[in-house]
């Protein structure tokens, strides 16, 4: 196994609220590798989203170290950090947050165009990403012409477009029905199988089960880690 796509070592994150200090993460060790999907679960306020934001460099650790592909985030210049976020990192949030005036394809191409990629090349990559998430023939639709599940697929396509290797998703299925939520997690697991590093925050144990590793946080610390068994029970054993 190579360097982790993202790694946290003894990360503490404190928020100051007036005179009181709230400890969101209390010394977390965490790593995700290429080809792996990790689910982070726990109650509200357990530190799930903070972990994701620190891993993605959206939020800074109070102490401890964050590494991206083996390099400490603190050793990167602001410009390098921004470039890492733009090129290698894809975020998926609960709401798809698409630009309503742009088509599905234009939405997906947007981060590449911000990055200075030529429009025609960005569009080709966007079409490819839309195919990866199973949206073929819908690239010219506007967000309001898509279902909730389709919009979230567009958001995932936008997160993986181009050379993005680390996908961070925060409750990506919050607004979706059961079966659509499942198909979203199947899709994320599929992207991990294709080589992406995927970290997904969810309060839903059922959906977390799509991940090979499930990390449960409690009060800002790792409370439990469950790895998929090497020899999983088959249909016969499960249903006997």
């Amino acid at each position: 196994m190579g360097e982790p796509a993202a790694e946290l070592r003894q990360v503490v994150k404190e928020h100051r609220d007036g005179s009181t200090v709230v400890r969101a993460l209390g010394g977390i060790d965490f790593a995700v590798h290429a080809g792996e999907m990790v689910a982070v679960t726990g109650r509200s306020g357990s530190g799930k989203s903070t972990l994701l934001n620190v891993a993605g460099g959206l939020d800074e650790a109070t102490s401890g170290e964050v590494f991206v592909e083996g390099r400490p985030l603190t050793s990167l210049t602001a410009a390098e950090r921004a470039e890492h976020r733009r090129r290698h990192l894809g975020f998926v949030f609960q709401a798809a947050n698409l630009v309503p005036a742009l088509t599905a394809e234009e939405n997906v191409a947007l981060p590449l165009e911000f990055d200075g990629v030529r429009a025609s090349k960005a569009q080709a990559s966007a079409r490819q990403a839309l195919e990866r998430v199973g949206l073929v023939g819908l690239q010219r639709r506007f967000p309001d012409e898509l279902s909730g599940g389709q919009r979230q697929r567009v958001a995932i396509a936008r997160a993986v477009v181009g050379t993005r290797r680390l996908i961070l998703a925060d409750e990506p299925t919050g607004a979706l029905d059961d079966l659509t939520g499942r198909s979203m997690f199947e899709l994320l697991a599929g992207l991990a199988n294709e080589g992406a590093a995927v970290v997904v925050v969810t309060h839903d144990d059922e959906l977390a089960a799509y991940a090979g590793r499930i990390i449960r946080l409690k009060d800002g610390r790792v409370n439990q880690v469950v790895e998929r068994s090497a020899a999983p029970s088959g249909l016969g054993e499960l249903l006997s």
């Binding site: 199947e186 144990d205 059922e206 977390a208 089960a209 799509y210 991940a211 090979g212 499930i214 449960r216 409370n223 439990q224 469950v226 998929r228 068994s229 999983p232 029970s233 088959g234 249909l235 499960l238």
Partner: peptide
């Protein structure tokens, strides 16, 4: 509670893979 949680989570992983 912790022991059962880990076991149930694993069952859930296996069942999810089998369902796919």
């Amino acid at each position: 509670i912790a022991v059962q949680r880990a076991a149930s989570q694993r069952t859930l992983q296996d069942a999810t893979a089998a369902r796919v």
